[in-house]
């Protein structure tokens, strides 16, 4: 049984149909990369999975539980799915360590000392223990995103959904975040990552999915999608992001 199963998912905002029938599944231990032009519905898709956005129609299953069932305990499902946002969304009024410890305490019901030692251990793991008592906005973007990833990871999720985790970062800060994600992947975490980092996707992805205008236009291994795309639309899209990458790398 797939860990996540999305069936004919549709989402509309008024007259705008953002997702027009998405079908895909994620197996346990799999790494899936989703790409697609701006406005194609990638964020909407990820948010539907944890019902931060209410789907218009279609079904989503997580570990056999129907997420789209109106009576489902969605809070319980969210506890088992880590979510990382493009804009980090750390809690600015809490110290770095409290950002991690607070959910451990109020969601997992950990005792104070236990939550703090776990939070500190996690910060050590990402090399940021010296920032534990700083506030998020005193950190660089790359550090903030690493803390946000650590915060999600600390909850011990079954899967992590990451929405363009590096696209708000200055180019020189992208590397440290991608390295952390590769590290997490090596440990066997199931991941769904929206990203335009082609090299990273090639390294990490078991499957790449290209979305355009609310439908999946291409799906396959990185090799298939990047080197033998079947659709002209995919080729155009890849040319665009590859050109951007070349510009970014130019001195």
């Amino acid at each position: 049984m797939a860990l996540i199963e999305v069936i004919d998912l549709k989402k509309r905002y008024g007259d705008l149909e953002v997702l027009k029938g998405i079908d895909f599944h994620v197996e346990k231990g799999e790494r899936i990369v989703i790409m697609g032009p701006s406005g194609s519905g990638k964020t909407t898709l990820l948010k539907c999975i944890v019902r931060l956005v209410e789907p218009t129609s279609g079904k989503i299953f997580f570990d056999g539980i129907e997420v789209t069932d109106p009576d489902v305990d969605i809070v319980e499902i969210r506890r088992r799915i880590g979510f990382v946002f493009q804009s980090f969304n750390l809690f600015p009024h809490l110290k770095v360590i409290d950002n991690i410890a607070l959910p451990l305490r109020v969601v997992k019901g950990m005792r104070r000392e236990e939550a703090y030692s776990r939070a500190l251990a996690i910060l050590k793991g990402i090399g940021l223990e010296d920032k534990a008592y700083n506030y998020p906005l005193q950190l660089s973007g790359g550090q903030q995103q690493r803390v946000a990833i650590a915060r999600a990871l600390a909850m011990d999720p079954d899967v992590m959904l990451l929405d363009e985790p590096t696209s708000a970062l200055d180019p020189e800060l992208v590397g440290e975040v991608l390295e952390l994600l590769e590290d997490i992947a090596r440990k066997g975490m199931t991941m769904v990552i929206v990203t335009h980092e082609v090299d990273f996707a090639e390294d990490i992805a078991d499957r790449v999915i290209i979305i355009d205008e609310g439908v999946i236009v291409e799906e396959g291994t990185p090799e298939e999608v990047f080197y033998h795309p079947r659709k002209e639309r995919t080729r155009r899209f890849l040319r665009r992001i590859l050109r951007k990458r070349l510009h970014a790398k130019a001195p």
């Binding site: 948010k47 944890v50 931060l52 809070v75 319980e76 969210r78 506890r79 088992r80 799915i81 880590g82 979510f83 946002f85 804009s87 969304n89 750390l90 809690f91 607070l102 959910p103 109020v106 969601v107 946000a148 915060r151 999600a152 909850m155």
Partner: peptide, 21 residues
Amino acid sequence: RGQVEAALSLGMKEWQVFRYV
């Protein structure tokens, strides 16, 4: 909105989101 979304995504209940975030 992102603050609320982040708190919800961590599995907080609505009153916890309000109280802590």
